[in-house]
Simulated scan of single mutants.
Amino acid sequence: MSQSLLVVTAHVGDFAWRCGGAMALHAQRGVPVHLICLSYGENGESNAAWQGHDAVEREAVKQLRRAEAEAAATVLGVSSLDFYDLGDYPMPDSAEAVQRISQTMRRTNPAVVLTHPEHDPSNLDHCRTFDMVLRARMQSMAPGHGRDHIVPPQIMSFEPHQTELCGFKPNILLDITSVWDKKWQAMQSMPTQRNLWAYYERVAMQRGAQAGRRAKSTGQLYGEAYQSIFPTVMSTLVV
Rank of each mutant, 00 (worst) to 15 (best):
1 M>Y: 05
1 M>V: 11
3 Q>T: 06
3 Q>K: 14
4 S>G: 06
4 S>I: 03
5 L>G: 01
8 V>Q: 13
10 A>N: 14
10 A>D: 11
14 D>R: 12
14 D>Y: 07
16 A>Q: 14
16 A>W: 02
17 W>A: 04
18 R>M: 10
20 G>Y: 05
20 G>S: 09
22 A>N: 06
26 H>L: 14
28 Q>H: 04
32 P>I: 02
36 I>S: 10
38 L>T: 10
38 L>D: 07
38 L>H: 09
40 Y>N: 03
41 G>S: 09
41 G>A: 02
42 E>T: 11
43 N>Y: 05
46 S>K: 00
48 A>S: 14
48 A>G: 03
50 W>A: 01
51 Q>S: 13
53 H>M: 06
53 H>Q: 14
56 V>Y: 04
58 R>G: 04
60 A>V: 13
62 K>G: 12
64 L>N: 00
65 R>F: 00
67 A>L: 09
67 A>E: 12
69 A>T: 07
72 A>K: 01
73 A>L: 01
74 T>V: 05
79 S>F: 08
79 S>L: 08
81 L>M: 04
82 D>T: 13
83 F>E: 10
85 D>M: 08
87 G>Q: 05
87 G>R: 02
88 D>I: 08
90 P>I: 04
93 D>K: 10
94 S>R: 01
94 S>Y: 01
94 S>K: 00
95 A>K: 03
95 A>V: 03
101 I>R: 00
104 T>N: 01
104 T>R: 11
105 M>E: 04
105 M>G: 01
105 M>Q: 02
105 M>A: 01
106 R>N: 04
106 R>C: 02
108 T>Q: 09
108 T>H: 04
108 T>N: 00
110 P>N: 00
110 P>L: 00
113 V>H: 00
114 L>W: 07
122 S>C: 07
123 N>I: 02
126 H>Q: 10
126 H>Y: 07
130 F>Y: 14
131 D>S: 06
131 D>W: 03
132 M>V: 07
133 V>M: 02
139 Q>C: 07
140 S>W: 02
141 M>S: 15
143 P>C: 06
143 P>I: 07
143 P>K: 09
147 R>K: 11
149 H>R: 05
151 V>R: 09
151 V>L: 11
154 Q>F: 11
155 I>H: 01
158 F>V: 05
159 E>G: 10
159 E>C: 11
164 E>P: 04
166 C>H: 13
166 C>L: 10
166 C>W: 08
169 K>H: 08
169 K>D: 11
169 K>Y: 07
172 I>W: 10
172 I>E: 10
172 I>P: 08
174 L>W: 13
175 D>F: 08
178 S>D: 11
179 V>C: 05
184 W>I: 03
186 A>E: 01
186 A>V: 07
188 Q>R: 15
189 S>F: 06
190 M>N: 12
195 N>A: 12
196 L>Y: 15
201 E>S: 05
202 R>G: 08
204 A>V: 06
205 M>V: 15
205 M>Q: 14
206 Q>M: 09
209 A>N: 08
210 Q>G: 03
211 A>K: 13
211 A>T: 11
213 R>G: 03
216 K>V: 04
217 S>F: 13
219 G>W: 06
219 G>T: 11
223 G>N: 07
225 A>C: 10
226 Y>P: 15
228 S>M: 12
230 F>E: 08
230 F>W: 10
232 T>W: 05
233 V>G: 03
233 V>M: 13
234 M>V: 14
235 S>R: 12
238 V>L: 15
